[in-house]
Design a protein around this nucleic acid. Structure first.
Lengths: 129, 129
DNA sequence: CGGTATCCGAGGCGATACTG
DNA sequence: CAGTATCGCCTCGGATACCG
């Protein structure tokens, strides 16, 4: 029942991670951790993202309370995004994960090559006989 | 150019996170951290996963060197999956992230409700006028 | 037992065009 | 400036059926 509990607990975790660790979130979070940014400022900082995806990412992050959106009613309007206190607390666990990735990238690269080699051997084995 | 560097570095990170933090990986990793498992043992432990997705998940994790697959050539064959030393090192950063999620779930829930409320107000505002 | 093969629908994401 | 709207691809994952 321990296991079953973990699995039930896990569903919201998964949903949350999907929202916070999606394709562009880390770049955005990274940028907003340094300073508050305007929309187009973020686009320039992350050139590969499209308007649509950036908007979607910002909405998701805002919805989950890790960033805040404030509108200054000038003409034309100015919009400023900034990280929230909650968002700041996300930094250290995420950084830990990225640090893990950096440190172990060589080992992972080796593992991938070995895997590819094993695959090749298998297929040539099947062909031989 | 600091920024540009970070972004170029980030691509492999993203790819890696996509492979390791995908829908079922955490459950599988969690299970294999406790003990080595047979294929169907994992299915029973994680009842919601389909054969196909479990196979795909195991292959991905194996490819990246965090789990190992060993085949015992009996009849019928027995397959055993176990966590690798590399895989074990993944635990602490992942746990940190899950701990963050658990701790802040209430705050996130509040943020979502506020967001929903703001959305409603906006749409009713537009209808009024 | 431990998988493959195939079909399918939902959703993520990009490209492009348009707007207050 | 800061978006929305639309289209279309493409991958992920579930359902189902079959296999050594």
């Amino acid at each position: 029942m321990d296991t079953a509990d973990e699995l039930r607990i896990e569903a919201p975790h998964r949903e949350l991670l999907d929202q916070i660790l999606d394709k562009w979130s880390l770049s955005v979070l990274n940028e907003l951790c340094e300073r508050p940014c305007r929309f187009n400022e973020l686009r320039r900082a992350i050139p590969q993202v499209t308007q649509k995806s950036l908007t979607a990412t910002l909405r998701r992050l805002e919805r989950n309370g890790v960033i805040a959106r404030e509108v200054v009613s000038t003409r034309p309007v100015a919009v400023r995004y900034r990280i929230t206190p909650l968002g700041k607390t996300l930094r250290s666990p995420v950084d830990a994960l990225l640090a893990w990735a950096s440190q172990n990238m060589p080992a992972i690269e080796r593992a991938r090559q070995e895997f590819a080699t094993r695959e090749e051997e298998e297929s040539s084995f099947r062909l031989e006989r």
